[in-house]
Every structure is written in C-alpha cells, then in structure tokens.
Design a protein around this nucleic acid. Structure first.
Lengths: 335, 335
DNA sequence: TCGAGTTAGGTAAACGTTTGCAGCCCCGGG
DNA sequence: CCCGGGGCTGCAAACGTTTACCTAACTCGA
C-alpha cells in the first residue's frame, strides 16, 4: 500500500498526500482531512526507507556502547531511546564488547544505514575507523576523549569536582589512609579518575601511595580488596573506587572477611549506578548522571544535525560529578 | 558516491557492480576484482535503504523488551545483537517501560521501518496493536503468551521443571514451611511460575499457603520479606522467589534484620541473572538461560523470514529451566 | 563450418517517497 | 475590464539500488 493508493482514493496527487502527511501548512484543511481519513482507514504507514532515500536524512542515530551488559549503560540506552522517540528518531545500537572486529562492523553498519549522527560511548575506538565516519562528515559525539574537529562534539566530564568532594568527605571523617582502586590503564576515563584522586589528595596534603589496579569489574574489586588487606602495616581505613562495580565487589569481599562496612572500612564508589542504592550498606558514591550524559549526547547530535551551518567547530559540553552521601562511610576507627 | 560512480570507474554496468558486490557467482573473477578495487579505493558503502526499497527486505528485526534497565534484559539484547551481526541483520530495539503509549509508538516505528520480523519479550501488549503487525504479515515471535496463528512463533517456557527441582531441593533439606514470593498478577509469566510452585508443592504433599505478592523488583522483595517476618506463628524457613531481583531484595533485607542466610533462612531465586553469582551468599536459583532465550527468538525469526513457504502454522520452541545450586540454601534449622 | 545451447554482462524498469517547478484559480487594484 | 500577484495543487524527476529480460559471444558436436 502506497502513497499512490492513498492519492487515488482521496482523489488528490501524491504530492498533496505527502504534504498532508507531513503537515505542510499550505495544504487546504479540507483536503488534508480527506487524506487523513483514507490514511486511517487503510492503516497506511509511510515507508521510511523511501523517504530517507530522497530526503537524504535517515532519522537514525547510532549509539555505540562498550557493553550493554555493564549496568552503567542500560540507563543511558533507555534515556537515549526516550529522546529518540520524542524527536522521531530511531536508534541503531551496537555493543562492541571491546572487540575490534565488532567495532569495525559497527561502524560499517552505521555507514551503510546512513545514520545522521553517532554517539560514541566506548573507548579504544581506532582512529582509522573513525576516519571513515569523519570522511563522510557524519556528526559525532564523544565522551571524554574526542578529537577537536569540525562536526565532532565532545562531552567533557568534570571528574575533579566529585572526587575532591569524596576525598574531603573522607578526610573530614578523619581518614588519612585512603586507598584508590583504579580502573584499567587503557581507559582514558579511568586514568582521569585516578589523577583526579591524586590531585585531590595532594590538595589536602595526603600522600596517594595506596593505589592498586582494578579492572572496573566486580571480580576486580574483590581481588583488589584482598591485595589491600595483604598490606600488613599500612592497611587503608577508607577506599575510593574507580567505579561502582568495583565498590560492590569490595563490599562483597569485605563481608566474607567479616570486615564491617562502614565501621571498619569506609567505601566510596563512582558512577552512581542504580544498584548502588541497593548494596548493604547503600553505597556512598560520586554521581555521574547517566541520564544527563545521555541527554547531552543526544542534544549534541541534534544540534549538529538539525542546523549544520552554524557550530562547525565541534561544540563542547560538560558534565559535572558530585558526591552522593549514603551509608558506606563513617568516622575512621581510632588507629 | 553511487554504484554508478563505481560502474563508471570500473568500466562496467551498474548491474555488474551490484552482482560483484553481492558476490553473485556468475560474475567473472577478473571483473569482480576490478570492481572491488574501485570499491575499496573509494571507500564505497552500499546504501541500505535503496537496497531495501527494491528488494523488499530491510534486514532489520525489531526487538521489544519491557525495560532495558531490568538486569534480565541486557544479556538478551547482547546475544540478539551478536546474532544479528553474524547474519547481517540490524536490530531495532525498543524498551516500552510498561507504557501503552510507548508500545504503540514502538509498533508504529517497526512498521514504518519495514522490519522483517519482531521478537516480543514484553507482556501486556494490546491485541489491537499486534493486529497491525499481523495484518502486514510481519513474522512475530512471542515468549510464553503468544496466540496460535500463522507467522507467529512461540517460545514456551517449561517452568515446571526448574521449580520442581527447587522445591524438591528444599524438601530434601528438610524444609517444610516454604514460602513463595510471587510476581505481579498481570504478568502471565509470573502467574505461570506461581502455579508451577503450587503444583510442585502439592506433588510432595506440602501445602502452598505461604504465598505473598511481590512485584519482581528489589524493593518488592524487601517488602515481601517484612510481610513474611510479620507472620508470627508460621514463619517460613525457606523462600522461593518469582525472580532474582526479588531474591536479592530479600537477601538485602534479611541482612538488616540479622537473619543469616542460609543458616536461618534459605533463599532460591528465578532467572539466574548474572548478578545472582555476586550476592552474599551467591544465590541458588532456577536458570532460565537468557542467552538461550535470545537464540531461540532469533532463530525463530530467521526461520520464519528466510523461508516463508514452509512452516506457516507458526512453530513452537521450548526453553527448559533447571536449578543451579549455589550457597543460599542449607538444612532447615531445627524447628 | 554451422547451429544449438549455454552463459556473462548490459539495459532499463521498478521500489515509494519528496520536492522544484509550473500552472491554475481567484482576488483586488488601476 | 484587464492585469498582476499570491496561494494551492499537480506533474515529473530524482534518490540508489536490484533484477527480469535481452543480447552477444562462446563452446562444442555433427
């Protein structure tokens, strides 16, 4: 069932049907009603691919995340989808699971479907791949790590703010041996958190010597706690974790060691994923709002897409982080 | 950059380019090489919408889930996507968040994009909406609740098996006061679990009187445990939960009441989401493999789509459930 | 050498829209 | 009464592919 079928039955031209459907204001209300009546009767739905073909805009945004099964992402995907629906966009989701092959196929698929823009919420995307997208002038949004170029928007995250609050909060609770469980080296975002920690510690005159490597997973958190416990002399009284999953792993492992949280050990996470509200005890953490992140990314894409003339020197957005107090921190036990 | 551009440069017709790209075997290897050379040089990517328009197949599958933020779903989405990539399909994901408006827009979008099939992993989709899809003969896959009709495949879940195992396991541990925290009434899948429980209890001659209402959320589990604790005389020594999130809520609430799990109270969940491995203690639960579920759904869609002739009396698939023993169950404490 | 049969590659129509352009009608002013 | 102009509507081209059909060339046996 075509637009032509509709035209025939409503006794108008296809042009008029098209205009009526797209609510072009110049079309006579009476004609418009006639068209819509037929449309409803027949249950006609425009064919998006034909539309995209001629208009040159697919109304699809690509969204590349590193792992949809990582609890950090579903909230983002949901928000992104909400916005897409509101604005009549579709979203093409790919979860690369850190696999270079998948990243490549992901980019290829986005190009083949002629997406109007791509938000990249994963890291370790090779430069050569991005070149394909940039070559086609596809608007891009990066988080944290993007190059500074036309048609590329960047969302910068102010790690400093939240992490400083976290460190100061611990210091106010008289903690001085504060450890940091870092994320993997290859993640720029993890490195940024780490240096924000070092910076904040330095600010209040504390040494940041207690840093161990984690990998942003629950298991990594468990391992890291064991490593920290092994340090006989200078065991920490508080731990700041590079993300919430790590913190959840620490809490879980602490339970097995009969270390009471927060009385024996204070824990602070990072991200504020939903699950952080449901640990025992509920996790004090640095919030990096996933909803806000998704909003910014979507907005950036819209800005770039809907008015391509202006702002061709990729714009910048900033997401601030801040401490959320729950119940996983307490006064340091006397040494 | 077109297929025509490629044709011009490779000095062949567009038909040949098309055939070469699609690896039609009759095309001369030498010509094919010439075409591919140009394709690679120019970084040409076929336009999927033009292709879809003429071929009548979009190579897009719709996937409707109820809430991507529910930890049950990401694993499914990931598996579905993996399969899609392998088979050169795209997936159009929508998360309805139980909102009828969203369900409607979801179906509309699927039709407008001319998806080749839809897997429906949500419940409470109105019949009238589905009618739109069925009217267009879009292949459909349902889980649990689908109508029996042409072009509609159903995945049945054998709740009995796993739940019987769970109940028998508890009985073997000398539990007799076994409670069940049910899911919401409006979910057929929740009702099926509930009656499977009743059935299994009856089989071993136990009354299933201890049933309280949950809502498949963590908070619901917390509330339900309190309700159960309130029952002075006949407090359960074991609880079977309608899903894992409920069980996690129970564990969390038990901790606050200083009820030791499993020594004071045994808990069994349902679904075996990944998180179930990381509770304290790790959760014994009935596995309903999300990977397998996604596989079946995808396979059903492929079967229905790729060979439309046969199997026009919608096929049936069955997913079995089975008990996974971890550490949240123990011998009943002497009464 | 010739003709039938096979095969590779080209021509052009078709897919379902949007949109630039042209034409028609109607209104109002000179 | 005539003419200019503005507002709607329709005509037809274009978007980038696939594919049915046709043609030309080649193979091979008689």
């Amino acid at each position: 069932m075509d637009i032509r079928e509709i035209a025939r039955r409503a006794k108008v031209s296809t042009a008029t049907v098209s205009r009526a459907i797209n609510r072009v204001p110049t079309v006579d209300p009476q004609l418009s009603r006639r068209v819509w009546k037929v449309v409803d009767e027949l249950g006609y739905y425009p064919n998006t691919q034909a539309r995209a073909l001629v208009s040159g805009r697919s109304r699809i945004f690509g969204l590349i995340v590193s792992e949809i099964t990582n609890p950090f992402f579903p909230e983002i995907v949901q928000t992104f989808e909400n916005l897409a629906v509101e604005n009549n966009y579709e979203i093409l989701l790919t979860s690369t699971v850190h696999d270079p092959k998948r990243m490549e196929s992901s980019v290829r698929r986005m190009i083949e479907r002629r997406v109007d823009g791509v938000a990249i919420l994963t890291f370790g995307m090779e430069e050569s791949l991005l070149e394909h997208l940039r070559f086609r002038k596809v608007p891009l949004v990066f988080v944290d790590v993007g190059p500074d170029a036309p048609h590329i928007a960047n969302i910068r995250i102010d790690y400093q703010n939240g992490i400083r609050q976290a460190v100061q909060h611990l210091a106010a609770l008289r903690h001085s041996r504060i450890a940091f469980i870092a994320g993997p080296h290859h993640l720029k975002s993890a490195m940024a958190r780490r240096s924000a920690f070092q910076h904040a510690m330095a600010e209040i005159g504390l040494p940041s010597t207690l840093i161990v490597e984690g990998d942003h997973t629950l298991e990594g958190g468990m391992r890291a706690l064991n490593e920290l416990i092994g340090m006989r002399r200078k065991q920490p009284t508080a731990i700041l974790c590079s993300n919430d999953m790590t913190a959840i792993g620490v809490i879980r492992e602490a339970y097995d060691h009969e270390i009471k949280i927060p009385s024996d050990l204070s824990i602070i996470g990072f991200d504020d994923i939903r699950l952080a509200q449901f640990t025992t005890p509920p996790l004090t953490t640095v919030q990096m709002s996933q909803v806000e992140l998704a909003r910014l990314a979507f907005q950036a894409l819209m800005d770039e897409t809907e008015r391509p003339s202006l702002a061709n020197r990729g714009s910048e957005y900033t997401l601030v982080t801040s401490l959320i107090l729950r119940r996983s921190t307490a006064l340091a036990s006397s040494p």
